[in-house]
Each structure stands twice: as structure tokens, then as C-alpha cells.
Simulated scan of single mutants.
Amino acid sequence: MEYLNDMALFVEVVKAKSFRAAGDATGVPNSTLSRRIGALEKSIGLRLLHRTTRKIELTEAGQLYYESCRRIVEEARIAHEQLGEMLAQPSGVLRASLPVDFATTYMAPLIAEFARRYPGITFELDLTPRRVDLVTEPFDVAIRMGEQPSSTLIARQLARLTPYLYASPRYLKTAGEPTDPADLRQHECIGYPKSGPWVLHKEDATAEVEIGRRFTVNSVGMYRSFAVLGQGIALLAEGVVADDVAESRLLRVLPDWHGSPIPVYALTETRLLPAKTLRFIEFLQERLVTQ
């Protein structure tokens, strides 16, 4: 209600003991302050202030009204500050739907880091390949990879993950190392179902390669495991294989070439989010971009 704002302005005028000083404190012009207080008095039906050229004084009714307004304004300020603290340190249950393999191989350490940062949040994580219904099911957010179909959901892009080519030292020792994308036709390459030819990029150059697929796998975890076990060359995002590369279980192949970036989205039903969900999305945007 607009008169609640007028009550706050009335309190500032009384504290400052003049319209000019109150205007300096609030940034509201003197003329506007005077008009707003006048409208407040008219709506109440009583004069609240005695005005002179030098100062203002409270009427008897104004004194009573001021005491009530001061408490209301102070309680509103405290409530506002408490909500600000809640936003800084959110709490509650965060219910998230995550892709199975992406969550287990990529997001688990990030979620653990987020949990340490916000100890007031508890988690219910649903790892499922199905598309959950954010309207009828009790999820705060769903994380999905790849371009999303048109819908009424709000999609916030978290990152674009660039995949590179990797193979195990054992595989490269046996099969040799490709020096050009065309060489991949003579190699065992691990594929995803219905993924088509590999499209690789190097600066402004693009190469499209039909690959042999002894293994076609719809699980990122299994895909990565086959690469580590020497079953062929895999196209994987850096974050998924970071530990394997650090331990020399996988080596990058054709290091100047990479696959098409894969977008990662956070899907929500609405733009107006509770603090726990907003902080989770912001955290993933911050951390995934560095992966």
C-alpha cells in the first residue's frame, strides 16, 4: 500500500525536523515530501505537523502517529535485513533433477563444494534420464545438456563445454597416433548412439569425419571407462577426464582440434526463484565455465 511508503517518509521528516534535511537524507525533493505528508494527513483526517518557515513540530495526533509509524518502519527494516541475510546464507531443501552420468562424473565434486559453502541447504538429488515435469513434480531445478526444445520453462545457460579427443597410452601404442582428422577413419572410435559423424573444429577450419564404432555407448561413464581401458578414441569434455589426464590414463589426441561445444542449462518453472535455487544456479555458472 502506498501509504506505508508515506509513513516511512513521515518518520524521516520528524527525525530530521525539517523537510529540507529529510529530503537530503532520502533523496526525495522537498516539494514531493510536503505533498506526500499532506496527502497522508488528508487520508487520516488529522493534522500531524505544525509547519513554520523555520521548523516543524508534531501535533498531539502526530506524536501518537509517529510512535506507531516508527515501530512499523523499524520492523519493516529488520524484516528486510533478515531477508537479505537469508539470501546471503540460504537454507532449506534443494530438489534438483540431474543427468545420471554428467552428475556422477562431473557435478558431484561441484555439488560437494556448494554444500560446504552453504551449510544451511540440504539436498534431494534425482538422477534420471527422463525429462521431469517441473510444473507438477516438486523439483526446484533441472540440469540438462544439449539444446533444449521450446517450452514454457525458463532456461538459463550455465556453460558451453568443449569436448576434445582422448585415448589411452595403451591404445596409442598399439594403433598409433592420428596426425590429421582424416586419420580417425582408420582408428577405433567410441561413439554415442545416433550421433552421426564427428564434426571437429580448429580455429576457422572444420572437418567432418565418419568414424568406425566398435562400441556405441549411451553412458558417459561407460564411454570414458572404455577409453581408459584402451578400446578406442573418445570425444569427451575436459572436466570429465581431468583426473584421468592428470594420472596419464588418458592422453589428448589431435590437441589442436575439438568438437562442437555442448550447452548446459538450468531449467526452472519461473524466473522468481528462492535463494537456495538462485545461489545454486549462480554457483554452477561460476564453476562450470572454468571446467
Rank of each mutant, 00 (worst) to 15 (best):
R144S: 06
A266P: 00
I262P: 01
E147V: 03
L153P: 02
T32E: 08
G212K: 14
L40R: 08
R71L: 10
R160H: 07
G191L: 06
A266V: 06
A88Y: 08
E74Y: 13
L161Q: 06
S195T: 03
S91Q: 09
I56T: 07
L278T: 09
F123S: 01
T59S: 09
D204N: 13
W198R: 08
P261R: 03
Q63S: 11
T216I: 14
L184E: 07
I262S: 06
S91D: 01
T179W: 00
N5P: 01
L236C: 04
T26N: 03
R47T: 15
E269C: 07
P163H: 06
A8Q: 12
Q186C: 00
V14I: 10
S18L: 04
V228Q: 08
N5H: 10
D256E: 15
G221W: 07
F10M: 05
R271C: 00
G212A: 13
R170I: 10
T122A: 11
P274W: 06
D204S: 15
D24K: 15
L40C: 02
T162V: 15
F10G: 08
T105D: 09
P178K: 08
R36K: 06
R213Y: 02
L172K: 02
V289P: 01
W198T: 01
P255G: 11
L267F: 04
F280I: 02
M222H: 13
R36Y: 02
P197D: 03
G239Y: 08
R213H: 11
P129G: 05
A227P: 07
S34T: 11
E177S: 14
I143G: 07
L58V: 09
R271F: 00
